[in-house]
Amino acid sequence: MPLDPSPLNSLGLPKPPSETRVVVAMSGGVDSSVVAAMLKEEGYDVVGVTLQLYDHGAALAKKGACCAGIDIHDARRVAEEMGFPHYVLDYENIFQEAVIEEFADSYLGGATPVPCIRCNERVKFKDLLETAKDLDADCMATGHYIQRKMGPNGAELHSATDSNRDQSYFLFSTTPEQLDFLRFPLGHLPSKEATRELAAKYGLAVADKPDSQDICFVPDGNYAGVIEKLRPGSAEPGEIVHADGRVLGQHNGVIHYTIGQRRGLGIGGLSEPLYVVRLDVDKKEVVVGPKEMLATRTIPVREINWLGDKPLTSRTEWHVAVKVRSTRPPREAIIRPISDTEAAVELITPEEGVSPGQACVFYDPDSSRIFGGGWIWRGY
């Protein structure tokens, strides 16, 4: 088959920007606004889309969240300033069913869920991506700090240049098919300051807008308060128990505790610092113990999305680096596949505070490439 003689544009497509339609997922923040403005200035046929994920009227009072009422207004304003169409899609029901309900059930099960990953996986990179295709887009661009690079076997997922802004932990479940259609124009930038400089260059009103904080539907980080609203009566009292069996106190609901927590346990007067080492939902027990009990070496992982060139099960072992929390650097590990979607991950150096419900993301130790990841699923 002869090679296509058409030169590739900046998005890697073989046609002029003016003939390339790009749907930009606009959250109303500075990052996605810069992406839209940048592509519009380059001459692309830009269409902005913002998702209304929950009641934006109530969200107006919530600062520092994404997809809230003020953010929809800001996204629309950027589109008007830059002169491209903008649509707001009501995804409240989809978001409720695909993200919020699972978040509540997972939390009640003693896990520490990461709903932002599910939102990317089940809403933004699934339903929104299909909407982009329905709009005859050639690709969809987002403001995520991650890189898409072409390798010998197709598109690869790579960490952002700025490790402080890298969002690979939240995007490990991006499939090869999605990666073919997605673009991440900010992943190569050296810093967030560079993004804000671009926003100022384009004269965007959001240039100095603060970054979103916490989970968008969890005001002030009060997870337990949200769970109690979603599942009334779920915060049942129980005992705080030492790992050696001693009852140390009472609690007013397992949902108020997370693995690794030390402060706010309500069991003062002890000679040693104690941490939450396990949550026993069936017994309504918060189990505490010394810090060394938090150390975990072997992690069972399931629902794996594998992005390597060869199948996960093509080897008995994969020597990689893994992240078990978004705020921690990748650590040396060995993946031992059980099936195409399940594996045991051995950490060369034990990690503290590994919790079911969190993600375990796989990295190439010799490059910036991401090999996918999965969900930590059993209690410790």
Rank of each mutant, 00 (worst) to 15 (best):
N9Q: 10
N9Y: 09
N9A: 09
L11H: 10
L13P: 03
P17D: 05
R21Y: 09
V24T: 05
G28F: 10
V30D: 05
S32R: 08
S33V: 11
V34S: 02
L39E: 03
G48H: 04
V49G: 00
A58T: 02
K62C: 01
K63S: 08
I70F: 01
V78Y: 01
E81R: 11
F84Y: 15
H86E: 03
D90I: 00
Y91W: 07
E92S: 05
E97S: 06
E97V: 06
V99R: 08
I100S: 00
E101D: 14
E102V: 05
F103N: 07
F103Q: 03
D105G: 12
S106I: 01
G110T: 04
G110W: 06
V114P: 01
P115N: 11
E121W: 12
E121I: 09
L129C: 02
A132C: 06
K133C: 06
M140G: 11
G154P: 00
H158G: 10
D162P: 02
D166T: 07
S168R: 11
S168T: 15
T174F: 00
P176H: 10
D180M: 01
H188Y: 10
H188N: 12
H188F: 05
L189Q: 05
A194Q: 13
T195S: 14
D211H: 05
S212A: 12
Q213L: 11
Q213C: 11
Q213K: 14
I215M: 03
V218I: 15
P219S: 12
P219N: 07
A224T: 03
A224H: 03
L230H: 08
G233A: 06
I240Q: 01
I240W: 00
V247E: 08
L248E: 08
Q250C: 00
H251P: 00
I255V: 13
G260Q: 02
G268L: 03
L270N: 13
P273M: 02
V276N: 04
V277K: 09
D280Q: 01
D282W: 01
V286H: 00
V287Y: 03
V287H: 01
V288P: 02
P290T: 04
K291C: 01
E292D: 14
E292G: 04
T296F: 04
R297T: 13
P300M: 07
V301S: 11
E303G: 12
L312C: 10
S314E: 07
T316N: 10
E317L: 02
V324T: 15
S326W: 14
P330S: 11
P337S: 08
T341N: 11
I348L: 15
E352N: 12
S355L: 06
A359E: 11
D364C: 08
S367W: 03
R369W: 01
I370H: 01
G372Y: 06
G373I: 12
G374P: 15
I376M: 14
R378C: 10
R378A: 13
G379H: 15
